[in-house]
């Protein structure tokens, strides 16, 4: 069976990883001298508490090539096909590390590495669907081809209270167009072509949620849908109620923005990701 590997920025929960047999590789978040593995040593609740309270600004770092080499070598004992799906290369060096790690594997195992040009829920939808295909017996080429074709059909929208975290971490991308507004807005951004794009400027959180809901309802055919929050489970519940009928329950995913992504987006993000059905 094809083994599916991804990174922690996919926000795949341990339960999902278990269910679909996905190997989730953690990135790192660093507060001062202390280094934590994303979602492993530092849970989201604790992290966001620290993010808001701590005077030290956390930094993040990528997975090393050596880590991937070791992981691939180990996995190669159980399988001869590995598909690794990483977050956008524009956000992190994880894709490069995976490629380098792959080059150093002295084994005949067939390893494919794909930069999915997304992160968070969008990546989650691609990875879980890929893992489902693997469970159903698809081979590496089939799954890899499907992922590449599905990337343009995968849409992510995130609403923010502030873009300051994105700016500070250098991941603002084209959404810089929304910085510096003299009016209070709750910007909605997308991830496209691997980077951050401006989408809309609702005036408050309620309008922002309406925007996310209308965005999701605008699709004719949705294959899978993921919603995420960082520190606002109440809002996530409301969002879930408003969107749950759009897809069958087994293709409706709820998750949390991981600490590594949280470092760059801040504690008040809500996200909706959609895998659009093939026409």
């Amino acid at each position: 069976m094809v083994k599916i590997v991804t990174d922690s920025c996919s926000d795949i929960t341990p339960e999902l990883a278990q269910e679909y047999g996905i190997m989730v590789v953690p990135l790192y978040v660093q507060f001062g001298d202390k280094v934590y593995r994303d979602n492993v040593d530092l849970a989201t609740v604790e992290f966001y508490h620290k993010l808001v309270k701590s005077k030290v600004i956390p930094t993040t770092s990528t997975v090393t090539p050596e880590f991937f080499t070791k992981l691939f070598t180990k996995l190669a004992k159980e399988t001869n096909e590995i598909l690794t799906i990483t977050l956008s290369e524009m956000y992190s060096g994880t894709y490069g590390s995976a490629l380098q790690g792959k080059a150093m594997v002295k084994n005949k195992c067939h390893i494919e590495v794909i930069d999915c040009q997304l992160a968070i829920g969008g990546q989650l939808l691609l990875v879980t669907t890929a893992a489902k295909m693997a469970q159903e017996g698809a081979n590496l080429n089939q799954i890899a081809q499907w992922v590449r074709e599905a990337i343009p059909r995968t849409h992510v929208r995130m609403s923010f209270d502030t873009l300051e975290y994105l700016r500070r971490g250098g991941r603002i991308g084209k959404a810089q167009a929304f910085l510096g507004s003299l009016l209070k807005v709750n910007p909605v951004l997308s991830i496209k072509d691997g980077t951050t794009f401006p989408v809309a400027r609702p005036r408050n959180r309620a309008q922002a949620m309406d925007f996310l809901v209308n965005f999701a309802k605008g699709f004719h055919h949705i294959e899978a849908l993921a919603i995420e929050d960082a520190t606002t489970p109440g809002e996530l519940e409301i969002l879930a109620q408003r969107l749950k009928d759009l897809v069958p329950p087994e293709r409706f995913y709820r998750s949390k923005i991981s600490p590594v992504v949280g470092t760059h987006v801040g504690p008040h993000v809500l996200a909706v990701s959609i895998l659009e059905g093939e026409c």
Binding site: T62, P65, M90, G93, G96, S97, L99, Q100, R167, G169, G170, R171, I172, K174, Q176, A177, F178, L179, G180, S181
Partner: peptide
């Protein structure tokens, strides 16, 4: 395999 992170302006582009 890393990219420098550039500083963004605090104002609209």
């Amino acid at each position: 395999y890393r990219q420098p992170r550039l500083v963004a302006a605090d104002v609209a582009l």
